[in-house]
Design a protein around this nucleic acid. Sequence first.
DNA 1: CTGAAAGCGCTTACAG
DNA 2: CTGAAAGCGCTTACAG
Lengths: 350, 350
Amino acid sequence: MVTMRDVARQAGVSIATVSFLLNDTKPVTAATRARIEQAMTELGYRRNVVARALASRRTHIIAMAYPALDHRFGFSAAEFFTSAADAARKQDYHLVLWPVGNDGMELRELVGQGLVDGVVLMEVQLEDPRIGILQKTETPFAMIGRTTELAGLSHVDIDFDTTVESAIGHLHGLGHRKLVLVSGDLTDPRFHNYGPYVRTEAAYRRIAAEYGVQVVVLECADTTRAGQEAAARLMREHPDTTAVLVLNEYAGLGVASGLNRLGYDVPAEISILALLMAPETAALSDPELTIMRTPGPELGQLGTEALIRQLEGADPLPPQLVAADLLPGATIAPPRRGKTHPKARVKSGR
Amino acid sequence: MVTMRDVARQAGVSIATVSFLLNDTKPVTAATRARIEQAMTELGYRRNVVARALASRRTHIIAMAYPALDHRFGFSAAEFFTSAADAARKQDYHLVLWPVGNDGMELRELVGQGLVDGVVLMEVQLEDPRIGILQKTETPFAMIGRTTELAGLSHVDIDFDTTVESAIGHLHGLGHRKLVLVSGDLTDPRFHNYGPYVRTEAAYRRIAAEYGVQVVVLECADTTRAGQEAAARLMREHPDTTAVLVLNEYAGLGVASGLNRLGYDVPAEISILALLMAPETAALSDPELTIMRTPGPELGQLGTEALIRQLEGADPLPPQLVAADLLPGATIAPPRRGKTHPKARVKSGR
DNA sequence: CTGAAAGCGCTTACAG
DNA sequence: CTGAAAGCGCTTACAG
């Protein structure tokens, strides 16, 4: 292994000077710089990050803590991860994905070992036990998502209000007045504290009321099956609905296939707008879903930047809320005029 | 920060003894052990993994190199990753996901830094440039997948022959004689060298011939859209097909929705069997796809174990091939007897 | 079974 | 602008 000592000897300088150049921590004359750089390339030197970490007390590793037990790692999560990893790499950090439980046990284990400089928390709960652990151990962290109590916590999140406002505004503009929200399942103990469900539902109730449109919320787990069942319940209980907003990704696919299976013509008879979905998930549906695109790439990048600023002692990044934008698919159309739904045809099926 | 020195002082021993106990590298009397353990809990000691790594030249970090540029990170990849991470954790290793390109540039960067003890390679190509880099840098690695030239390389992979044999055997047993394989797209430069495509297609051609059933291969990219188009082409060019095998995950969803959209009754008129799919992907389809379940959890675990054995100097794990098992869904039925397909009905659609 | 000491490859005051 | 030296918190021959 080629060490800094080898480079220093070859260049005729001290290892301190090599280090100063490498880290850009002290000025070095052009001549010495040239000699050192030549020595490095000649020898094929690569700095040992472990030694650097021990000496500097900084590993330059960031963990993205993902609660894999409670949330499937699908396309949306992959978007957050890859954009965060890219952002980290550009700033000379490594970002790695760390599966942790929501209770924080694995997280405590992780941060105690001195392996990571900081943590990006994904899928933050309104009351999140992981926060206390990070604070107690004085581990720098940034949240993608928000707890209820925000006092000074570094975070970025979806702007649920603006997203729901855009969604309802768009449908209202097309003439829809009978909207339903298929929301998440807050009775599931894993999610009773989950910000996106709580915030989306609150925004929907407020904004739908402002627009003077029907306010109906169906709770639904995040599976295709549950989405299909929600579609059936929806059309049974609210047959005059002209547009449905779906919060969860896989439930969204289920609502689409469920309505299709029940014989409804989407979007001619009923429109579907998925709130917060990755384009790759939308493409799995037929017809392709119109979505409010989850700002995963933006939030992954911003969350990482917020953390790195803390680590570098730079000015903190103020909290950022990013709204989802509409990404057109083929599941939205104006409502049929002056005409109720035809009786649902029943397709042959299971 | 509590260090080993603090523990040693409190327990009245040397730091060497603490280290011996912690690593179980030398015997320690019960009495000393008790004193040290008490000191550790009293002080809340946590070993610093960075210092350990520098002194022992072993970081206990394993990278799972995933070519995120060429392969979407979906449910299957998540299965490989989480099972590999679990397996690593059980053996006192950390496994982290590392997005790398197939050309090996990022991989060279990674292994040069001394941060990881070894690499688990995912999505191995038949000729994989990453292999040469790992060999040149003498980095231990294990492959999930196989290169053409295997000489002594540690690997685990899907048993494509057995998988295809089971699939065809099952359909043949139900009476199917007109099978089609919707394979991957070998003309795509990213995949012309991709083992699963090459091996599956070869197995299909051989085994279908043995069973005396029709041999037809359609190439198809791994997207829902491409799958839908393949379904259309399939029924246009081979209208007497009674069962279709699909290799790619998202193409599989597309074949299902495509046949459905064309008005075919699945499985009454045509059966679909997805080769190599994750159950969670299958559940996105309606009706739920019958699949040969990708042995992701098994292979993730085995690949990690193969690597750790190398790292620990244990007996190498012999190459393992794991077949996919049939996981029933609702897309397979016996073919209609003595009856050709009714002319496809055209549903209203885009 | 236990300890004193060298060393892993860097960073960083401190001195010049 | 550059260097000598201490030190990061461990592991590991070596000695007893």
